[in-house]
Computed example of a mutant assay.
Amino acid sequence: MSNTKFDPAAVARRIAENDAADLFVLDVRNEDDYEEWRIDGSTNVPIYDELLEYDYSTLEGHLDELPKDTEIAVVCVAGITSARAAEFLREHGFDAKSVDEGMNGWGRVHRQYDVDATDGVVQIVRPGTGCVSYLAHDGEEAVVVDPSQYVDRYLNAADERDLEIVGVADSHAHADHVSGARRLAGELDVPYYLHGDDAGDLEDVTELADGETISVGDRDLEVLHTPGHTPGSVSFRFGDALLSGDTLFLRSVGRPDLEDSSEDAVREAASRLFDSLERLTALEDETVVLPGHFSDESIRPLATELGDLRAETTNELLSYVEDDDEEAFVETIVESLTDEPANYNEIKQINWGREQPGGDVEALELGPNNCAAN
């Protein structure tokens, strides 16, 4: 990487490893874009339009507010205006670099974590989108769960551990990101697993059913049908690990309105979700919950024992399940639903096999993650 550019992955690493005290992230996008989606801990000086015109007057007026003794990572949409701002700052004595490809690059970052709390699971986190996927492995074999469209990340993770990928699974038909599962399975000539209720018009799908297992080395990945977020949502048990997909998050649950947003349909789906959560919360307290998304949780890997999750007060919707209060659960979901994930209808059509991804497929999933119910 050029000495005038920051690799987005390096920015993510420094933030994740608590090295961000020596890194000041300056976001020069317009305020609305920044408020919608940003790098945690960044500072916004909304001068994007000015920088397009090579106007540095507002930036010059903020120089006294910027640190002279700290590296500055300047970010914009695609790395063009941030490069201009970083050059201007260097000319004024600042150690400033542009984040390569801007927030577009940030959205493609993937970070790997071996989950020490359980055996045989690698968690792959996308800090820019809140998406989480997994490599469940035993012996020399692995199954990939919920991969992004950047399939090389999973091939590399397997190669680094001398693992052979023997299957690829989606916990459901995703609405927030384009799945790479079919492509990865096709490239490797291994089965692609998905519950039939979420298969849409897809071909070459090995349909999952409740209670079935997927062999991984000498172990099994057990399928639990947990509908609600989607009709075909599943969770996977792998030893004491629960890959909970978009059914159960650490601070919320999966929203039930992305198939049909009419109130009656949402209430019915929320009721099914309540039943699914009752099933999951009946598992052993030592079960390690590994969700398919996160919001602003900073722990890595993203993992919490079910007993601890039930005892905490940070997941309001789960507390209703603990209290067996389905009515309050459904009402809270109906009242608290926020904006849907960006481009979710188009993404769903691609993941159902009804549309082919176009040249803008990477841009479709950029933005905040809105898959949680509240």
Results as ranks from 00 to 15, higher is better:
173 A>P: 00
175 A>F: 14
176 D>T: 03
177 H>Q: 14
177 H>A: 14
178 V>F: 02
179 S>Y: 09
179 S>G: 13
180 G>D: 10
181 A>H: 10
182 R>F: 05
182 R>P: 03
182 R>T: 13
184 L>T: 09
185 A>T: 06
185 A>G: 07
186 G>T: 11
186 G>I: 12
187 E>H: 07
187 E>S: 11
188 L>V: 07
188 L>S: 06
189 D>E: 15
189 D>K: 15
190 V>Y: 13
190 V>T: 11
190 V>P: 12
190 V>S: 11
190 V>L: 14
190 V>R: 13
190 V>N: 13
191 P>Q: 09
192 Y>V: 11
192 Y>A: 12
192 Y>P: 15
193 Y>S: 03
194 L>G: 08
194 L>P: 08
194 L>A: 07
195 H>W: 10
195 H>R: 05
195 H>Q: 12
196 G>H: 02
197 D>T: 05
198 D>A: 02
198 D>C: 01
198 D>S: 05
199 A>Q: 04
199 A>T: 01
200 G>R: 06
200 G>L: 04
201 D>N: 14
201 D>T: 10
201 D>C: 08
202 L>Y: 03
203 E>I: 13
203 E>R: 15
204 D>L: 03
205 V>A: 08
205 V>T: 12
205 V>Y: 10
206 T>C: 02
206 T>L: 06
206 T>D: 13
207 E>W: 00
207 E>C: 02
207 E>V: 08
208 L>K: 10
208 L>M: 15
209 A>T: 15
209 A>W: 04
209 A>C: 02
211 G>K: 09
211 G>Y: 06
212 E>C: 05
212 E>M: 15
213 T>D: 13
213 T>C: 04
213 T>H: 05
215 S>E: 14
216 V>G: 02
216 V>F: 03
216 V>H: 02
216 V>E: 01
216 V>M: 03
217 G>T: 05
217 G>Q: 06
217 G>A: 04
217 G>S: 05
218 D>I: 01
218 D>H: 11
219 R>A: 11
220 D>A: 14
220 D>F: 12
221 L>V: 04
221 L>H: 10
221 L>N: 09
222 E>S: 07
223 V>H: 09
224 L>H: 15
225 H>Y: 10
226 T>C: 03
226 T>I: 07
227 P>N: 13
230 T>M: 08
230 T>C: 05
230 T>D: 14
231 P>Q: 11
231 P>R: 09
231 P>C: 07
231 P>H: 11
231 P>S: 11
232 G>S: 12
233 S>H: 15
234 V>F: 12
235 S>Y: 05
236 F>V: 04
238 F>H: 08
238 F>L: 01
238 F>V: 00
238 F>A: 01
238 F>S: 01
239 G>P: 13
239 G>Y: 09
241 A>C: 01
241 A>Y: 01
241 A>K: 00
242 L>N: 04
243 L>H: 04
244 S>H: 12
245 G>D: 08
245 G>V: 09
245 G>N: 05
245 G>M: 04
246 D>M: 06
246 D>H: 14
246 D>S: 12
248 L>W: 04
248 L>D: 05
248 L>C: 06
249 F>Y: 12
250 L>M: 08
250 L>G: 00
250 L>V: 09
251 R>M: 07
251 R>V: 07
251 R>T: 14
252 S>H: 11
252 S>Q: 09
253 V>P: 09
253 V>F: 04
253 V>M: 04
254 G>Y: 07
254 G>H: 07
255 R>Y: 09
257 D>Y: 03
